[in-house]
Design a protein around this nucleic acid. Structure first.
Lengths: 113, 113
DNA sequence: AATATATACTATGTATTGCATAGTACTAAA
DNA sequence: TTTAGTACTATGCAATACATAGTATATATT
């Protein structure tokens, strides 16, 4: 039985919310997001974030500008669309409800073990 | 863009923890768990819970006794194994760390929007 | 007694998602 | 010109929740 796998499963569903949240603070490109997630101990890798950004863009939650870089190929700087902002706020509510529900459910337990 | 889907994705990774937690309070069978989850606004359905219980049992986190029922076929009453208790506690730690990390990450944001 | 209904568990297939991996393309240093 | 670093793209795999259909048992209804 692998705790690492379960840990990864827990993380899965909230990546979307975290990434929208990071982008909402100001324009960033993929590597900025990777950095930010790493520093929050929510490790993510390239293979995860690029497809996710593409998906969110295709769904109309994000848009981007190409920006030239001095140290390599151009970068996609992402920003939230109006729809993205709305969606992020809904995810925030969902997250809070989830935390509340899980904490209530599991605290009943901890008192008895 | 479907908020319901994202909501479902968030829920995915924590079901395991919730179910172990419920079982740790005392022996229950599948329908008890379904009831408990529903009353915590963490809706789950049969098709989810039966395979999950089987998986956890095969992994050695749960064991069960057959108990006769007056209103239908016999029931599997589950309990945690020692390994299951250990694992549940690890999941609890993981959950708390995750909540902390996500809240810190997203609160930075909310202050600026 | 025979059928219908409710309950409980089983089995199979699907969709979504994170991730591993390999590949392309561009810039700058060596 | 080659090498290293950076940024994005494309493909396939594994894990999980869920939909759906099916099997089996006990009680209720006729």
């Amino acid at each position: 039985m692998d705790i690492e796998n379960s840990k990864a499963q827990m993380k899965k569903g909230i990546l979307e919310y975290c990434i929208l949240s990071i982008i909402s603070r100001g324009e960033v490109y993929a590597s900025d997001i990777l950095e930010e997630m790493k520093s929050s101990s929510l490790l993510v890798v390239e293979g995860t974030i690029y497809p996710l950004l593409s998906r969110l863009k295709n769904e109309g939650l994000l848009s981007y500008n190409w920006v030239e870089s001095k140290s390599g190929p151009p970068r996609k700087y992402y920003q939230l669309t109006q729809q993205g902002i709305t969606f992020m706020n809904e995810l925030g509510l969902t997250w809070q409800e989830l935390v509340k529900a899980v904490n209530e459910l599991t605290q009943k337990t901890n008192n008895q073990i």
